[in-house]
Design a protein around this nucleic acid. Structure first.
Length: 860
RNA sequence: GCGGAUGUGGCGGAACUGGUAGACGCACUGGAUUUAGGUUCCAGCGCCGAAAGGCGUGGAGGUUCGAGUCCUCUCAUCCGCACCA
């Protein structure tokens, strides 16, 4: 017997897999397909524990379905464009391209060491011109179909880095890198018309029954569909220029039109801007609103600011009733029409505003317990159900009836129309960045924006760029942007913006079906593999990436490039890997690798290994460089082996929750691995004796056969921690039947059990499983072995143990034949001495027998 | 503020449709092996109690023969959105 040596075994098994090329996926396989995909990583250059967990999870699932006879596609790529490469270029003078490809090379190694069953022949990076060129091709198709357009939009502009920032990159109003105050700027930007698909994207959610409810709900809220009325209020008096028809507002509460008290427009509404141009006081007010708009404190306080414009409109249902028009800071220009009618009695914001500026508050919805004469609104608006009153023709209606009636009337008066409004905005994809996919458009003075002809794709990024000054290197490149117009041949300029990197990740899953296709998507291959059967990634992408990918999939389907509407049939969002934090007296964080622990008086004390300095044990947080609570996967691989790391991240917590990395935990996993090996290694060489029904062996055989279903269901149901627990438990059963001194019957049962065990541990600890498989005397690789079949006779129990309760409290148990009828079980239970003790002096009123489950005796 | 999730020993967690709460791992305690530390092996380990027994799944009620699981209220923590008309 030799101690299991992962350092020697693990590389050998990986070599064997590579040599046999076992993970290459054939496209002409006739077996059913299973496409499993983990969200591809950004090539930071370093693998972290989160990757280990994410990719091990996917690998366990991939290896399981592979063993179950499916043709499994499990590809891998790199989400390789983006800001970190340019930041590295600016900070260290390296080229983004070299930096990125070096990082990919550095990360590919640990990913291969992890032993995941990936078809590396399909690998690509989004910064490969072969990939982004195809992206440009479909982008142009969407452009031709009208899904891509250009308009002026307000963006976050970082005046120091001279670039647009995404909303996520603005922290408390400042650029995340430069710390400069971010300005709102109007820039002409490219947009994707995702709002065209708003309804489809909502309806589609109901088909995604293997997605977490949480994610579906978040997407629904993000799209934010609301139904209401878009209507125009006519001016009382002279109409402002350009708004001759009146003031258009959007409301979801047309039932409260008789409660109207004021109109409010956004500070950046065209009317407000017009008034500001004419009146310095208005200009000053508008400026104040804008400044306050970004200030956290003011939003927090919710202070309502308003200014009466002096203009007024006429109520649609009463020509003698005029309503004043205000400018208000709480009205948003980019939602609805940028103008509202205020009904203070039934909207809290409107009420706050009305109270502050002394505007009328007239209730029009009466709660069921309210009286029309006495019902009053205090400081809280009434937003509950009730009957309409004070409302002429709507009096007595329910809210829903009144909404319909008001919409009908407004439509009949030709002053508006029932409308659906979304919170979702079109997707701005322009980035003033170098390291991204060039937008394949040429601007010609005569022809306008013209798509780059197909035969000139890809538009490749130039390599000779500099990062010594801020701004977009593409824009200041001496020659790159100067081209001829493809349409008229005149001098023209290339678009120098690049695409948001979320575009890159919105279709890569379809490209994996055939990464070398001459078209963006090989439709036949995509029809074979799409949709992804199981997608795995972090919940932080619940709206962004997952919504964009769903949108692009639908858009490409409408271009005839794909057949599916939804890219991901199943989604699993995994938790993070966390670790304790350690802080020194001077406030500095200390890495776990430098910490040792002692127990003093039952308390666990952390201190620095080298100096003995006592440390404060802080919160358990996501592993991060800033808190230094990081454990490098490579170090763990080196100390314990890859399998121990894989097993631990799968074992301790349910996969959707965070898992706390602990040294003690990985040692537990390591212990299991060595114990498993010892069981295989203690089995005698040579062919096993024949299996027998000897009772001494039957317990082991039963346990092994039952384990097959339990572990399989755990994997299929993403309950990996439970599956691992069952494997640990089974090891105990195995150890209770040692090989040393065992009868032939037990040796035979052990051989069978070990054969099963090797197959069941294979998804989790594949390197160990291969070694175990060979140790049992088998030829070939266990990756090619089918998932074992349980013998129905061995998993069916002939006897069951039934707990017996008296008045709901467990008092004893009886053993009965499986399926025994009620009368027999009842007699057995009543005769049990442990039970009868508790029945002394009581009268049995009722005996409930749940077949093969439990007996409950009701007595008093 | 709105929406959602979670709450079980010292810790991570198990308990699939209401049916033996605490599987499995960690920590801890005792013992064996070892020159010693570590490793390895055996045993114990929800709380109260000497025992019999009682009490226990954030808290309070309820439904049920039976509730961690279902219902009502409530507290705490976490997450998402946030002046969305």
């Amino acid at each position: 017997m030799a101690r299991y040596n992962p350092k020697e075994n693990e590389p050998r098994q990986r070599d064997a897999w590579a040599k046999a090329d076992v993970f290459r996926t054939a496209d002409d396989d006739t077996r059913p397909k299973y496409y499993i995909l983990e969200m591809f990583p950004y090539p930071s250059g370093r693998m972290h524990m989160g990757h280990v967990r994410n990719y091990t999870m996917g690998d366990v699932v991939a290896r399981y379905w592979r063993a179950r006879g499916y043709s499994v596609l499990h590809p891998m790529g790199w989400d390789a464009f983006g800001m970190p490469a340019e930041n590295a270029a600016m900070e260290r003078g390296v080229h983004p391209k070299g930096w990125t490809y070096d990082n990919i090379a550095a990360m590919r190694e640990p990913f291969k060491v992890l032993g995941t069953s990936i078809d590396w022949s399909r690998e690509f990076a989004t910064c490969d011109p072969e990939y982004y060129g195809q992206q440009q091709a479909w982008f142009l198709k969407l452009y031709e179909s009208g899904l891509v357009y250009r308009r002026e939009a307000t963006v976050n502009w970082d005046p120091v880095d001279m670039t647009v920032l995404a909303n996520e990159q603005v922290i408390d109003g400042r650029g995340w890198r430069s710390d400069a105050l971010v300005e709102k700027r109007k820039l002409t930007q490219w947009f994707l018309r995702i709002t065209d698909y708003a309804d489809d994207l909502i309806e589609g959610l109901s088909t995604l029954d293997r997605w977490p409810d949480k994610v579906r709900l978040m997407q629904e809220n993000w799209i934010g569909r609301s139904r209401g009325l878009r209507m125009t209020w006519r001016w009382s008096g002279a109409a402002p220029a350009g708004l001759e028809d009146g003031l258009e507002v959007y409301t979801t509460r047309p039932d409260t039109l008789y409660g109207a008290s004021f109109m409010a427009i956004a500070p950046d509404h065209p009317l407000a801007e017009q008034l500001a141009a004419a009146d310095p006081k208005v200009a000053e007010f508008v400026a104040r609103c804008r400044a306050g708009g970004t200030s956290e404190v003011e939003i927090e306080a919710g202070e309502k600011l308003g200014m009466d414009t002096g203009l007024a409109v006429v109520h649609p249902f009463d020509a003698s009733w005029t309503v004043p028009v205000w400018i208000a800071n709480f009205v948003l220009m980019d939602y609805g029409t940028g103008a509202i009618f205020g009904c203070p009695a039934h909207d809290q914001r409107d009420l706050d505003f009305a109270r502050k500026y002394g505007l009328p508050v007239k209730p029009v919805v009466l709660p069921s317990d309210g009286h029309p004469a006495t019902f009053m609104i205090g400081s809280e608006a009434y937003v509950g159900p009730g009957k309409i009153f004070n409302s002429d023709f709507m009096d007595g209606m329910t809210i829903e009836q009144a909404k319909a009636a008001a919409i009908d009337r407004v439509e009949a008066q030709q002053q508006g129309k029932g409308a659906t409004v979304y919170r979702l905005r079109d997707w701005g994809v322009s980035r003033q960045r170098y390291w991204g996919c060039p937008i394949p458009i040429i601007h010609c003075e005569a022809c306008g924006p013209v798509g780059v002809p197909r035969d000139q794709l890809p538009v490749v990024l130039p390599d000779d760029v500099s990062f010594d000054i801020p701004g977009n290197p593409l824009a200041r490149h001496p020659t790159w942007k100067h081209v001829k117009c493809p349409s008229c041949g005149a001098d023209a300029q290339r678009e120098t913006d690049t695409l948001d990197t979320f575009v890159d990740s919105s279709w890569y899953f379809a490209r994996f079906a055939n990464p070398n296709a001459a078209e963006p998507i090989d439709k036949a291959a995509a029809d074979r593999w799409m949709p992804v059967d199981q997608y795995i990634g972090g919940v932080e992408h619940a709206v962004l990436h997952l919504l964009y990918a769903r949108f692009i999939t639908r858009a490409l389907k409408d271009q005839g490039m794909l057949s599916v509407e939804e890219p991901f049939a199943g989604l699993f969002t995994q938790g993070m890997v966390t670790h304790e934090t350690y802080k020194a007296a001077d406030g500095a964080w200390v890495e776990p690798a430098q910490v040792e622990f002692v127990t003093e008086g039952g308390a666990r004390i952390a201190r620095v290994k080298a100096t003995g300095e006592t440390l404060t044990i802080g919160d358990i947080e996501k592993m991060s460089k800033s808190k230094k609570n990081v454990v490098a996967p490579e170090e763990i691989f080196d100390t314990y082996g890859v399998d121990a790391a894989r097993l631990f991240v799968m074992s301790d917590s349910p996969p959707e929750r965070d898992v706390q990395w602990t040294n003690a935990g990985v040692e537990g996993a390591n212990r299991f691995i060595h114990r498993v090996w010892n069981e295989f290694d203690s089995q005698p060489d040579g062919p096993p004796p024949p299996l027998s029904d000897d009772p001494s062996a039957l317990e082991l055989r039963r346990a092994a056969h039952k384990l097959i279903g339990a572990v399989g269901e755990s994997i299929a149901g993403f309950r990996f921690n439970s599956g691992v627990a069952r494997l640990y438990e089974f090891l105990g059963t195995l150890r209770a039947h040692p090989a040393a001194g065992a009868s032939d019957a037990v040796l035979a049962a052990r051989h069978e059990a070990l054969t099963i065990l090797a197959c069941l541990i294979n998804p989790f600890v594949p390197h160990l499983a291969e070694a175990c498989w060979t140790r049992l005397g088998n030829e070939g690789l266990i990756v090619d072995v089918a998932w074992p079949q349980a013998d129905p006779a061995l998993i069916a129990d002939s006897e069951v143990v039934l707990p017996v309760q008296v008045n709901g409290k467990r008092r004893g148990e009886v053993t009965a034949a499986k399926g025994a009828d009620e009368a027999d079980v009842r007699a057995l239970a009543l005769a049990d001495p442990a039970v009868s003790v508790h029945l002394a002096g009581l009268t049995v009123r009722k005996v409930i027998v749940v077949q093969d489950r439990i007996v409950n005796i009701v007595a008093n």
